[in-house]
Amino acid sequence: MTERIPWERWDEPHEPWLLPGRCPDRSERTLLLEMTTRVVFPTILVFSLYLLLVGHYSPGGGFSGGLVAGLAFVLRYIAGGRQDIGGAVRIRPPVVIGLGLTIAVLTALAPALAGNAVLSSAMWEVELPLLGTLEVVSSLLLDVGVYLLIVGVALDLLRSLGAGIEQDARAAGERM
């Protein structure tokens, strides 16, 4: 037996749709956006990974993949507010940026250890059961670095320009 709900408020959303479970004020919630985000968020992330992986020969790559993943987080922020984005990503954004930059630079330097020119790339062909031949390019790691960097920048922007301004406005007593 659930709690009785006044008839005029039965259609207000009560349950959290997004995973971390914290919702902003009821008045800000839109059920449609939350539902859509819940369905679309993982899809966008998978699509961004697809862009990252095919980037060597086709349109895509670390930068555009990272931007698409960043957009997924922007969507979550709009739907779920700052509590949600804080729950979805527990690592601090600057660390993601730094990790991306470090991976990219190390990938650039790695060929020098083998005596090749800096930034040159190698390619391996891998036979996979069912999937067939897979070409792996070492510059994919560079793209992974760029991907992380861009995602980190998007998260940092959401933290400073989104949640940060929201917090300041609340502190100043403005109604959001």
Binding site: V95, G98, L99, T102, A104, V105
Partner: peptide, 13 residues
């Protein structure tokens, strides 16, 4: 490359 690597590492740390 070294200063750029340093920039990445100083953000992480």
């Amino acid at each position: 490359l070294l200063p750029m690597l340093g920039a990445g590492l100083t953000v992480i740390t």
